[in-house]
Design a protein around this nucleic acid. Structure first.
Lengths: 234, 234
DNA sequence: TCGCATTTGTACGTATGTATC
DNA sequence: GGATACATACGTACAAATGCG
């Protein structure tokens, strides 16, 4: 991390979560941050802008930089770090129900923007928070991009493996969120009743170069799952 | 709109939606845009950055600026313009079920971050898309900030009234999204069955200066409502 | 109410680094 | 390896909103 503004983003985010601004709910001025980090105005502004995008702070012209209050225990859409990022205090566990390589049929090929018969990792997981059934996840990874996955990796965080081991850079994602009645199978897995509602997120994830490498469908237990979206009007 | 980069944002967004880049799926280079708009590099970069945040485009270092495919008919979380913005082709209508001024009790005062007994506009609306029952909305506006509302305004877009008539600048919002069984009343309004799931968005909206002026709870018909979130990993 | 100091917003210019093709 | 194109970083000037006296 030798990029200055990214280092500053991480540092300020840590400072905020450590609570050192909780009295004033206000950050130092841009001028003060420039001096503290010994960088230019635009470098501080870029770091601040990133934190504004993540929903941690907001700026008021002529007044200062203020903290945004940030509910815990929600799936955060602005800054995705997987379940373990959103639930740092809770115990997370994962049961891998299925893990295999399949060949993309016409429908899957269209979804994954790849050719038919491309090899795809298919993973079905049941995930728990504090030992409660939290969600059922179906995910698909293009094997041309993610050449190897095993039970050990899929029991933990697939994303940190992709990031740290494969050195791939995740860029952006499209999420479609809706509500759907539970099927018999899912209601059993989540210990709910058939026909009750569930919260569903269909996710399509791209690398920074625009390549689609992952799609998934997650069916959440409506009793526990809350999504948080911290957005800006720009 | 005499701010250059905002003008350019609007222009490029129009160009994209008009389809002039649909062949190449690629924007002109930063250099070319600088020349075309006769502005500096940083002004173009700021405009492009805004469009990246809105999920319209993505940049690849060394390669160019590319279009992101953008599903229609969804509630867009990145760039909120109300129902009429998300459903430009459909017919939208609104039935105002209730409109009155109330005094904030302890619970509402906490939610609206105001003092108890502050006057609050309460509005209950049923909204239709193509004559189908789409959602029930309960909204609350702080009367100190939004001093006047009537049936005519609430039948149309409250936000455009706030923006254009009151000249208030909407800054950011927290949305909590979850799934909840329908009550008897809501199932009747939405023509669904009691106990079926519904998609719920609780929204807390702030002005650019950080003042909370609006909270709302929307209960969506799960058969029609889809939310789209176009996010970036930064 | 007015004016001034503070603080963020917009815009320009330049140089160098780094990924892609 | 070279050309192209985006990314990072520095610096400067002035505009606009806020807040205080």
């Amino acid at each position: 991390m030798d990029v200055k503004y990214k280092f500053i983003v991480t540092k300020i985010a840590e400072d905020i979560s450590s609570g050192i601004y909780k009295e004033t709910k206000k950050l130092p001025t841009v001028e003060e941050l420039m001096e503290f980090y010994n960088v230019s105005r635009s470098t501080i502004r870029q770091a601040i802008s990133t934190l504004v995008d993540r929903g941690l702070i907001y700026q008021v012209q002529g007044s200062g930089i203020f903290l945004r209050t940030n509910p815990e225990g929600c799936i955060n859409l602005q800054y995705m770090r997987g379940l373990s990022g959103d639930f740092s205090k809770e115990k997370i566990s994962t049961k891998v129900l299925e893990l295999k390589v399949i060949k993309a049929d016409k429908e899957l090929a269209q979804k994954m923007k790849c050719k038919e018969d491309t090899e795809i990792y298919f993973i079905k997981r049941l995930r728990y928070i504090d030992d409660e059934e939290y969600m059922v996840e179906y995910s698909y990874y293009n094997k041309d991009i993610v050449p190897y996955l095993n039970i050990e990796i899929t029991e933990k965080s697939i994303y940190s493996y992709i990031n740290e081991n494969l050195k791939l850079n995740i860029g952006f994602s499209d999420k479609v969120i809706y509500c759907e009645p539970l099927t018999a199978e899912h209601s059993e897995l989540l210990k709910l009743k058939e026909g009750e509602g569930s919260l569903v997120i269909e996710d399509t994830v791209f690398l920074t170069n625009g390549l689609l490498f992952d799609t998934s469908k997650c069916i959440y237990n409506y009793k526990y799952a809350k999504i948080l979206s911290l957005s800006n009007f720009k």
